[in-house]
């Protein structure tokens, strides 16, 4: 194959991505530095106000709360997902593809539908309340829907399949002789897990966590549906700037922060992956 062909093959797609992703994203970047027009819209004068506003205590607290919820969801999803992936990897080899398929299947059903399912479960007239009452409990139940916990449960539920997939990949690639080598050298089961299996599968954990964190912190569907109308996360805040408050520059500034956080985490994840694989050749 000659050298010119790749360019012809790639150019239609690259043109599309440039026009409808790169340029719009650069536009948002630029927008973050412009002033908001008096009647909405954008006034083309340079300002740092939008970025400064992100650190305003009011908005900073929303950022922190979003990070807290996203972090909590990430940790829970990773703990549960890693356990599930470990159990799948420990199953007989011929059953693993099927188990994995069914673990990932819900991920490919509609996100809104999956979130809605939790409304049905957590509702005041929902299934959990009905079941508890049918079991004979008639006292006051704590509010389940429209709480922070409901948001966390919804996020974990939605992203768990991905975490299972991410953790399964390194676990299934693990050479079983490596775990045996640790046992052979005198390591107990727990020591082997902690010192050999866990460090070698950090990339999967990092990928899973970063994925859940990034998608959660910018999420606005789950907080809107499970957190109730008053519940604000960054996603909802951005949404509001564009669709109700009409402050596009501030919305753009918030988005830039979201992207910055994401890129920071992805860098960390790359670092974790390289460390675990021992691929840093410049160290020697």
């Amino acid at each position: 194959m000659n050298d010119r062909k790749p360019i012809y093959l790639m150019s239609p797609a690259l043109a599309w991505l440039t026009a409808f992703m790169v340029i719009p994203c650069l536009l948002i970047l630029a927008l973050a530095f412009f002033r908001r027009g008096i009647y909405g819209g954008v006034e083309y004068t340079f300002t740092m106000e939008n970025l400064a506003l992100v650190f305003d205590p009011l908005y900073a607290s929303i950022f922190l709360k979003s990070a807290w919820i996203a972090g909590l969801s990430g940790v829970i999803a990773v703990v549960v997902g890693y356990a599930a992936a470990f159990a799948i990897a420990a199953a007989p080899a011929r059953r693993q593809p099927m188990l994995l398929f069914f673990a990932v299947l819900p991920f490919w059903s509609n996100y809104l539908v999956r979130t809605y399912a939790w409304i049905v479960l957590l509702n005041r007239e929902g299934l959990i309340v009905s079941v508890v009452q049918a079991l004979g409990y008639d006292g006051e139940l704590p509010k389940l829907l429209y709480t922070e916990s409901a948001v966390v449960v919804g996020l974990v539920y939605n992203y768990l399949p991905f975490v299972i997939l991410a953790c399964y990949a390194p676990l299934s690639r693990l050479n079983p002789e490596i775990a045996e080598a640790s046992r052979d050298l005198g390591g107990s089961g727990w020591t082997t897990f902690r010192r050999v299996i866990l460090p070698m599968t950090v990339p999967g954990i990092a990928t899973g966590f970063v994925f859940v964190f990034v998608l959660s912190i910018g999420n606005f569907v789950t907080p809107a549906l499970l957190g109730g109308g008053q519940f604000q996360m960054i996603g909802n805040l951005i949404y509001a700037q564009f669709l109700t408050a009409n402050d596009w520059p501030f919305g753009a500034a918030l988005s830039m922060f979201l992207i910055a956080i994401m890129m920071g985490l992805l860098t960390l994840q790359t670092f974790a992956t390289e460390r675990a694989s021992g691929a840093r050749r410049e160290e020697s």
Binding site: L14, L17, T18, F20, M21, V22, I23, P24, C25, L27, I28, L31, V214, L215, I217, G218, N219, F220, G235, I238, Y239, F242, W248, G251, A252, S255, L258, I259, M262, L266
Partner: peptide
């Protein structure tokens, strides 16, 4: 990066970028 980006950019960011565009 360009090829990978559409899969990892938060939906909301791409959404508002396209809306602005």
């Amino acid at each position: 990066t360009i090829i990978f980006a559409p899969m990892i950019i938060p939906d909301i960011v791409l959404a508002i970028a396209l809306l602005s565009f």
